[in-house]
Design a protein around this nucleic acid. Structure first.
Length: 645
RNA sequence: GGCGGCGUAGCUCAGUGGCUAGAGCAACUGAUUCAUAAUCAGUGAGUCAUGGGUUCGAGUCCCAUCGCCGCCA
């Protein structure tokens, strides 16, 4: 294998559904790996695309009165749009309806046939007419019922071509055995092994019951058959490189990293390598299977209405924040839970406090101590200890990413940031300045700058734009050269003038998306409700009530908050020396103009919060129901600042 | 039903058979001001699911039981 090349793939996504968070997750991991390989200077090819053949697509198109191709075009376009929006750095977007792909698949079929791995036989199965699906005898209910709909099935025989999967059982086991990390994570690999050990049956790879698929090669002269989806789909990984035609990119094969969801691991860890062996091609270096996302602990499903729309999350919370969250939150291979609270915690704590704020700290210090000039001059002399600690972690960190342990990778980078935050406290540069030790203070700032630079480089595969902003502010670029210089060779930054930039990760103080109605839990015994008052109506004392300071305020100014669908920025007179700035989520219900010079009821002693980077010193009271929102206002005009109670 | 995994601090999880069982988050207390009310330090009476067993010694190995999950049937 050529170590200077890398090939990363996502599955090609089936166009019977619009993109959801699972697709986004796979693709973001793949994008991260591709960006990481490029950072290392490897010649990288990153493939994604759509899977467009099969009976389901044929039907879905028909039900919409469209041709399968038109329908596939539309959904495929949606995937491509989402990936563009998500800053996915794919090199090729393959579609199984591409002419080159079809040709490559036919070539591969021909080769497998000539080799004797494909033979014509008869497929026998229990067919459910209404579900249009085949089942094996053991899957049936009571010996004949369809496991999906319960209706009787009938035994159908259909001519079919088969792939001699059974021939590859031992060779596959040998592969799993010899290549420790061919399938990741390990637990999933064990499942694959036990499946193969149970014995592999030959695989039916063609159908005569529908048309929307790739025809057999002309040499076989068998018009009735189209290829069954998995053969067609899996071969995309090599047809995308020109297999069977120009072969212009076949030098990227074997794939470095093939990412899949855990549901389709079997196809990628068993069928796919078997096909490759049949084609005399080397096997992928790694096939990685990731887990599912749940939402607030529950499985996502359309019927529950709790499906996370990835674009909506990225819109509300920021694309790179979301990318960071997904990769940081879950150990690779395990299921992860999406909740706005977890996402907000990650953004505010990891990103805002520990990372973004660190940059602000050295901007502030260098501004005060040295007119924003930062030098690495005395860093080595005064901070060997910290540099060694940082390097000890960074020397190990990349193995985590190579094993797709993105959570561990990020965790370690954050340990490096903690060294920087800790060093500031330990060395108190402000005290050094007071004591005239400018050199010491500047060395500390230089140390932190170097740490930030290194982390920015290594975090760039996950958050490319953010990393770029930091690099720009610090007058360097994120490139393979800087990776080699600062990470591999451990060089220090040239002296530079840091640019004062606004906070990278503004605090998020409230959930920015609609939360789906919680599903009714039936297991909750009804008697309990009698005993316990509902949460909203639990009893409080008058003292507790008066802990809340409610006041009448007069709105002096109201403007829209840029980039927000919900927020208005208000200046409210509460009878104090200065009007308060309040950020209120009422834009959908009130125009700024109609609010000016009206009175509202304000919670005056609420802890101030930053919302989208803007200070909010209070909260407006409003009532909300299904028809919308109504502000609470005094019945007659009252002096600004009058207390309510 | 078969195979495999898991059950450790309020939450998420680490813990090659061996000194008083750890980390992160949350909480509390203190320090500090360069910074986005941030950062740093300190603070846990944990039946290591339960019951047996092996061992000088078990969260760690073995058996059984209960509970959860995955793959397969």
């Amino acid at each position: 294998m050529n170590n200077n090349k890398a090939y990363v793939t996502t599955p090609i996504y089936y166009v019977n559904d619009v993109p959801h968070i699972g697709h986004a997750y796979t693709t973001i991991i793949a994008d991260t790996m591709a960006r990481y390989y490029r950072l290392q200077g490897k010649e990288t090819f990153f493939l994604t695309g759509t899977d467009e053949h099969g009976q389901k697509i044929e039907e879905a198109a028909k039900s919409r009165g469209r041709s399968p191709q038109e329908y596939a075009d539309e959904i495929s376009g949606k995937f491509r749009e989402l990936w563009d929006y998500f800053d996915i750095s794919y090199d090729k977007f393959i579609r199984t309806t591409d002419a080159d792909h079809k040709l490559g698949v036919q070539k591969a079929f021909e080769k497998m046939f000539e080799k004797g791995d494909i033979y014509k036989g008869e497929y026998e199965g229990y067919y459910c007419v209404s579900c249009e699906t085949f089942f094996t005898e053991t899957q049936l209910m009571d010996g004949e019922g369809c496991p999906d709909c319960g209706k009787p099935t009938k035994l159908v025989k259909e001519e079919s071509y088969f792939f001699r999967l059974s021939n590859y059982q031992e060779k596959l086991l040998k592969w799993y055995n010899e290549d420790e990390r061919c399938v990741l994570p390990k637990g999933k690999k064990n499942e694959v092994i036990s499946f193969v050990k149970q014995g592999l049956r030959d695989l039916s790879i063609t159908r005569t019951s529908f048309d929307w698929g790739i025809k057999l090669p002309a040499s076989l002269n068998d018009e009735k058959h189209v290829m069954y989806v998995w053969l067609d789909a899996l071969l995309n990984y090599i047809t995308a490189l020109g297999y069977g035609k120009e072969e212009e990119n076949m030098h990227f094969w074997p794939a470095t990293m093939q990412l899949v969801g855990k549901d389709i691991l079997r196809f990628h860890a068993i069928y796919w390598p078997a096909f490759l062996m049949s084609l005399d091609l080397p096997l992928p270096k790694h096939v990685g299977a990731h887990g599912w996302w749940t939402r607030n602990g529950e499985k996502m499903s359309k019927s529950k209405g709790n499906v996370v729309n990835p674009k909506e999350v990225a819109d509300a919370y920021g694309l790179e924040n979301f990318r960071y969250f997904m990769l940081r939150e879950v150990p690779f291979g395990q299921d992860g839970d999406f909740s706005q609270k977890a996402l907000i915690d990650r953004i505010n704590s990891d990103l805002g406090n520990e990372f973004g704020n660190l940059l602000n700290r050295i901007i502030g210090m260098s501004g005060k101590y040295s007119d924003f000039k930062i030098t690495s001059q005395d860093v080595k002399a005064l901070h060997v200890k910290e540099l060694n600690e940082v390097e000890a972690i960074l020397n190990e960190v990349e193995t985590k990413l190579n094993e797709l342990q993105t959570n561990r990778y990020l965790e370690d980078l954050w340990k490096v940031l903690a060294i920087a935050n800790g060093a500031i406290t330990a060395h108190e540069p402000w005290t050094k300045i007071k004591n005239g030790d400018t050199k010491g203070a500047l060395a500390l700032v230089g140390l932190v700058a170097n740490i930030l630079a290194r982390v920015s480089i290594l975090v760039s595969p996950i958050m490319p734009q953010t990393a770029k902003k930091i690099a720009n502010a610090m007058q360097f670029e994120i490139t393979t050269q800087s990776y080699e210089k600062y990470i591999l060779n451990k060089e220090l930054l040239e002296d530079f003038v840091i640019e004062k930039i606004p906070p990278l990760f503004p605090k998020i103080e409230e959930e920015l998306m609609e939360t789906p109605e919680p599903t009714l839990k039936q297991e909750e015994p009804k008697e309990k409700k009698k005993e316990t008052p509902t949460k909203e109506e639990s009893i409080i004392t008058i003292d507790q009530f008066f802990q809340t300071s409610l006041k009448i305020g007069t709105i002096l100014e109201a403007t829209e908050v840029a980039n927000s669908d919900r927020l208005l920025q208000l200046k409210v007179d509460l009878g104090e020396s200065e009007p308060r700035q309040i950020i209120a989520g009422i834009k959908e219900y009130y125009a700024p103009q109609e609010l000016i010079n009206t009175q509202v009821c304000v919670v005056a002693n609420l802890k101030p919060a930053k919302i989208m980077g803007l200070l909010s010193q209070g909260m407006l009271l409003a009532a909300k129901d299904k028809d919308g929102l109504a502000l609470m206002r005094p019945e007659k005009p009252k002096t600004s600042g009058s207390s309510v109670g």
